[in-house]
C-alpha cells in the first residue's frame, strides 16, 4: 500500500480535530479533538519515518505520546476544577482572561 495514503488519513484526522476544537463548546469534546490532532501528527511522524527510512519520526511520536499523557493529566484537572467552579464544562464560560 502506498504510504502516502497514511498521510491523507493523518490530514483528515487533523482537520476533524481542528474543526472540533473550533466549533465545539464542551470542554471534554474540545479536549478529545486536541488529542485527535496530536494523534494525527503522530501518524504523520511515523509515516514520514517510514518514508525516509530513519527512526527520528518514531522517536518524536513517542515523545508526543508522553507529552499528550501529561497534557491529559493537567487538562482534565483544569476541566474538573473549572466544572466545580462554574458548574459547566463550556469553554465559552472561561473567558475571564481577556484584557
Amino acid at each position: 500500500m502506498n504510504p502516502v495514503n497514511y498521510l491523507y488519513l493523518a490530514g483528515l484526522l487533523f482537520t476533524i480535530g481542528a474543526t472540533g476544537v473550533l466549533i465545539r463548546r464542551n470542554a471534554i469534546v474540545v479536549f478529545m479533538c486536541v488529542e485527535l490532532m496530536l494523534n494525527a501528527c503522530n501518524l504523520a511522524f511515523v509515516t514520514f519515518s517510514r518514508l525516509h527510512g530513519n527512526l527520528d519520526g518514531q522517536v518524536i511520536a513517542f515523545f508526543t505520546m508522553v507529552v499528550a499523557a501529561a497534557e491529559v493529566v493537567v487538562g482534565l484537572a483544569i476541566i474538573v476544577s473549572l466544572f466545580r467552579a462554574r458548574h459547566s464544562a463550556s469553554v465559552d464560560d472561561a473567558s475571564l482572561m481577556k484584557l
Binding site: A18, V21, L22, I23, R25, V30, V91, D92, A94, S95, L96, M97, K98, L99
Partner: peptide, 17 residues
C-alpha cells in the same frame, strides 16, 4: 485591537490556525 482579545479560546485558535 483589544476587542480582538475576547477571551474565547476558540477564536484564539482560529487566529492560530
Amino acid at each position: 485591537l483589544r476587542r480582538l482579545q475576547n477571551g474565547f479560546a476558540r477564536s484564539y485558535a482560529v487566529s492560530m490556525f
